[in-house]
Simulated scan of single mutants.
Amino acid sequence: MLTQVVLFDGFDPLDVIAPYEVLSAAADHLVDVELVSAEGPREVPSGLGPVTLRATAALDPRRADIVLVPGALGSMPDPDGGEPAADSIPVLLGNTLDTGLPALLKEALDRDGVTVATVCGGSLVLAMAGLIEGRPATTHQLGLDLLEATGVQALDVRVVDDGDLVTASSVTSGLDLGLYLLERELGPDVAIAVETLIAHERRGTVWTRGARP
Rank of each mutant, 00 (worst) to 15 (best):
L53M: 13
A154I: 03
A18F: 14
D189C: 02
V16Y: 04
V44N: 06
D162L: 07
S37Y: 01
P90L: 12
A38H: 11
G174C: 04
A129E: 03
R158M: 03
S123L: 11
T205G: 10
A25V: 05
G143D: 12
D32N: 14
R63C: 12
T118F: 02
L197F: 12
Q4H: 13
D156P: 04
V114L: 03
V5C: 04
G163F: 00
D162A: 09
L146D: 13
A57M: 12
R62Q: 13
L104C: 04
R209A: 10
L197C: 10
V160R: 06
D112Y: 07
L126K: 01
A25N: 05
L35E: 09
A129Y: 05
L2R: 15
V194E: 03
A27D: 14
L155C: 04
A154T: 05
L101C: 00
P77C: 08
G174H: 04
G113R: 03
S88G: 14
Y20A: 14
P79S: 12
D65P: 13
V159R: 00
T115C: 03
I17K: 07
L93Y: 11
P61D: 10
S123K: 06
I192K: 09
P90T: 14
R42S: 08
L147Y: 11
L181Y: 01
G163H: 05
G210E: 07
D9G: 05
L105W: 05
D156W: 05
T56N: 12
S46Y: 06
A129K: 02
L175I: 09
T118D: 10
P102F: 02
R212W: 13
I66V: 15
E21D: 15
L97T: 06
P90N: 12
D162C: 04
I198R: 11
L186P: 02
